[in-house]
Amino acid sequence: MNTIQQSAAKRAILASLVGAGLAMVGASLQAVTRNPLADPHLLGISAGGAFGAILALLHTGLFIGLLTVPLLAFLGATLIVLAVAQLAAATSADRLVLAGVAVSFIAMSAANVPIFLGVPRATHTVVFWMLGGLGLAQWDQLIYPAVVLLGCGAYLWLKSGYLNAMTVGDETATTFGIPVARFRLTVFVVGALITGVMVAFSGIIGFVGLMVPHIVRLVVGGDYRRLLPVTALCGAVFLVWADIIARTIMAPEDMPIGIVTGLIGGIFFVWLLRRRFG
């Protein structure tokens, strides 16, 4: 396998992992918030992960090696989750969504501070990374998002029954013996772990967690036992194709993949709003 083929293979594997992870997180958040517009990007989890990763890239250095960036990204995402839960008292699904959007703006503003204070040459690289990109994929780093996706994805799938109940309402879920507030917070933390690690290796890629679950529901229905694995598969395929488009549309320049997903996702978001409220 030549260098070009190896680079394409690495990018495809990373795109598959990131797409699957973000799609599963989006589907899970939509269940526990009962909001079809919920996804890790809109709720600020991606922004928190970006803040932690930027600190590692520009200021703290890799003090524990390759694990530094995903670790700080996870901590940043978790900080956002805890802030949102505290702000919304983790009891109201609607308040969680509103709090997530508000905290997202704060997190992105905080993420811009280390960029402003950083070395100009390094910040240029980080700004490109914030737009989303898979060009830095390395064989020895793919194990981290793979392990996180398998572990957290398995947990979410095993809790499919809980997620099904949460889509009906907190009262119904409570009658089934589900600790609603604790489970919702757990899903947020698991989502923060997946999102933080994916953001650490791919940058901010928005709208995957919003679009894919809705499209999959049209095909397989709302049962999370089927929805989650199919969503993961479709998220992986979608992001692989988005990366192919990003690499070819302005060849030989490598367009950030976040531009492609943002354009497609923005159009889908408008369609979803019109379908839901129009």
Rank of each mutant, 00 (worst) to 15 (best):
A27C: 10
T248A: 11
L55E: 06
T231C: 15
I259K: 08
L66Y: 12
V208M: 03
H124E: 15
I13W: 10
A8T: 02
G76N: 12
F176N: 10
L55Y: 08
L29I: 02
A77H: 11
T195A: 08
L273M: 09
A165L: 11
C152G: 04
H124Y: 09
G222W: 04
P252I: 01
A165R: 02
V18A: 14
K10P: 00
A251R: 10
Q86A: 15
A89F: 04
G258T: 01
A31H: 06
E253V: 05
A181S: 14
V220Q: 08
L117Q: 06
A107F: 07
N112W: 03
A242Q: 01
S92F: 01
L185C: 07
I45H: 05
G209I: 01
I204W: 08
A146W: 00
V126I: 13
Q138R: 14
L37H: 10
A246S: 15
I249G: 08
G153K: 06
S104M: 09
G169K: 03
S109N: 09
S92L: 04
W139S: 14
A165Y: 06
V18D: 09
A77E: 08
A102E: 04
L263E: 03
A137Q: 04
R95V: 12
G153Q: 05
V189I: 14
T172P: 01
L43R: 11
V97Y: 06
L98A: 03
G265Q: 10
I267G: 15
L218G: 15
M250P: 00
G21I: 04
A8E: 13
A77R: 05
I257F: 10
P120V: 03
M255D: 03
T125R: 14
N2D: 14
V230S: 05
W129N: 03
V119A: 13
P256M: 05
V113C: 03
G44R: 11
G262C: 08
L66N: 13
I115M: 14
V197R: 11
I178E: 09
K10S: 12
Q5N: 12
H214A: 05
V220Y: 13
P145I: 00
L233P: 05
G76S: 11
Y224W: 03
F63P: 07
F63G: 11
S109T: 08
T195V: 05
L42E: 07
A251G: 12
L273G: 08
G48K: 00
L42A: 15
L136F: 06
S109K: 00
L57M: 14
F105I: 09
G76L: 07
G44K: 07
A146Q: 01
V219L: 14
G161H: 07
V32W: 12
G153A: 14
A102V: 13
R225H: 10
W241E: 03
G19I: 14
A242N: 01
A173N: 04
V187W: 02
T172R: 05
P213K: 06
L150N: 06
M108S: 13
